[in-house]
């Protein structure tokens, strides 16, 4: 009868290897992916800001005019979705260029005062 298998014969060893330098390269790639994610989020925020402002203005105007039939936020959700789709469709290079352009634009930059 064969002796029962003993887990100590294997321990935690694995039969796999990784290419040299893999983990350093992996960290770099992850940081680059994170930066791309932040750029897209920044771009989305900049593009969505006018939509939010317009919606808020429309709500205020609607309240002022007290016209119950008016739906000031109609289509706002569609605009958010459209912008999400637009940002999602951009290549990383396009996002980078647009992000640079927006951050130096006098009227759209966060630094405008």
């Amino acid at each position: 009868m064969k002796p029962e298998f003993d887990f100590d014969m294997v321990g935690k060893r694995l039969p796999y290897s990784v290419p040299e330098g893999f983990f350093e390269a992996s960290s770099r790639r992850a940081l680059e992916a994170v930066e791309r994610h932040r750029r897209r989020r920044r771009l989305r925020t900049v593009l969505l800001a006018p939509v939010g402002i317009a919606a808020a203005a429309a709500v205020a105007l609607g309240l002022f005019l007290s016209t119950p039939d008016v739906n000031p936020v109609a289509g706002e959700a569609d605009q958010y979705t459209a912008i999400d789709r637009f940002v999602g469709s951009l290549s990383d290079q396009e996002v980078l260029e647009l992000d640079k352009a927006l951050s130096t634009d006098y009227f759209l930059s966060e630094n405008v005062f």
Binding site: L14, Y16, V18, P19, F22, F23, S26, R29, A30, A33, V34, H37
Partner: peptide, 24 residues
């Protein structure tokens, strides 16, 4: 994290992709 993923998906290339997705 990498070795945990590798033990599940087996292939290095697949573990690499899953690791990147996980880190993000």
């Amino acid at each position: 994290l990498y070795w945990h993923i590798r033990r599940i998906v087996v292939a290095h290339e697949d573990a690499e992709d899953v690791l990147q997705d996980s880190l993000v």
